[in-house]
Design a protein around this nucleic acid. Structure first.
Length: 273
DNA sequence: ATGTCGGACGTAGTCCGA
C-alpha cells in the first residue's frame, strides 16, 4: 500500500499535476491540504475517472482538506474530536475551519482498514498574533485526540499526515537565524509538535529520512527553490501498529520544479501488508 | 524589498493569506 500527503496550494490550479503524480507513483491514497475551494468547486470527476474516491471538506477559498483513495473510503469525518475553531473576535463564537478530514481506507486490503487524517495545522502568522495561540491550542487538542485513539485501541492503524507548519529541528530550515522572532521554529511550537510523539505516535518520515536539510517546502518568493531556502514542515505521525509496517519514505523534490508547481512537494510512504 | 503565487471580487487592480 502506498500512502502520501501533499499540500497542493489549490486543487483547481494543480489538478493536472496531482492526478499525473498519483498515476506516475502508483499511489493508493493521498491526503491533500489547501484545496482552497468549496466542496462544490472540487474537481471530483477528475479523480473518479481514474478510479479514486474523494472525501473533501472546504467552506471557502481558505484551507480545505481532502483524502483521495482507490482502495475505498469509508466513515468520513470532518474535524477531529476537540478541534478548536477560530474567530477574529475572541468573544465571538469560534468557527470551525476546514483543516481536518479523516477516512478509513483499505478495508478490503490484506492489511485491513487504515484510518487517514489529512491535517492542515494553522500557520500562526506572528508570535504575537491570536493565530499563534490558536495554532498551539490546535496542536495540543490534536495530541489529546491522538492519545485518546491510542488508548481506545492500542493496535489502531492510523496516519496523521499533513502540513504541520512547524520545523522541529534547526536543520529543517536553511538558516534558523532567519526565523528568530518568527513562527514555525519557536519553542512552544516545537514542544506542541513533539508532544504528539509522546503519545506513542511516531513521526515516520524522520525515521527513514534523517538527513539534515531534507525539505518539503520552498517559499515562492526570494528565489527560494533555486537557492534551496527550504523548510521541512510536512510530516506523518503514525500509530505504532502502522509505523511498524512502513518499509520506505520518500520526498519528491522533483515536484517543486517547473511551471505550475505547488510550494510544497509530496511525501510518499510505502506500507507492507 | 513577501521579491511569488492563488483566490475573491468583478472584469482591472487591489486585497487577503501563505
Amino acid at each position: 500500500m502506498r500512502l502520501a500527503t501533499w499540500n497542493v496550494n489549490s486543487i483547481r490550479a494543480r489538478v493536472d499535476r496531482v492526478t499525473d503524480w498519483l498515476l506516475a507513483n502508483d499511489v493508493d491514497a493521498l491526503c491533500i491540504q489547501e484545496t482552497k475551494c468549496k466542496d462544490e468547486q472540487f474537481p471530483f470527476e477528475r479523480f473518479e475517472e481514474m478510479g479514486y474516491e474523494v472525501a473533501h471538506v472546504g467552506y471557502n477559498q481558505w484551507n480545505g482538506v481532502a483524502i483521495v483513495s482507490r482502495i475505498g473510503i469509508e466513515d468520513v469525518e470532518e474535524h477531529f474530536p476537540g478541534q478548536p475553531g477560530f474567530a477574529k473576535d475572541p468573544e465571538a463564537e469560534q468557527v470551525m475551519e476546514a483543516r481536518a478530514v479523516s477516512a478509513v481506507v483499505g478495508a478490503l486490503e490484506p492489511s485491513g482498514p487504515t484510518t487517514l487524517w489529512s491535517l492542515y495545522i494553522p500557520n500562526g502568522r506572528e508570535l504575537t498574533d491570536r493565530h499563534y495561540t490558536y495554532k498551539l491550542e490546535w496542536l495540543r487538542k490534536l495530541r489529546d485526540a491522538a492519545a485518546g485513539w491510542l488508548a481506545e485501541d492500542p493496535e489502531v492503524q492510523m496516519m496523521l499526515a499533513g502540513d504541520w507548519n512547524v520545523a522541529p529541528l534547526d536543520t529543517d530550515v536553511w538558516d534558523p537565524e532567519f526565523f528568530v522572532g518568527k513562527t514555525h521554529l519557536s519553542a512552544p511550537e516545537r514542544e506542541a509538535f513533539a508532544a504528539l510523539g509522546e503519545t506513542g505516535f511516531r513521526e515516520i518520515t524522520r525515521e527513514f529520512l534523517p538527513e539534515p536539510h531534507t525539505y518539503t517546502y520552498w517559499d515562492y518568493t526570494r528565489l527560494s527553490f533555486p537557492k534551496d531556502y527550504g523548510m521541512r514542515i510536512d510530516f506523518a505521525y503514525l500509530s505504532p501498529a502502522l509505523a511498524d509496517r512502513v518499509t520506505g519514505v520518500s520526498i519528491d523534490r522533483e515536484e517543486r520544479k517547473g511551471q505550475g508547481a505547488s510550494d510544497h512537494v509530496p511525501v510518499l510512504l510505502e506500507v507492507t501488508d
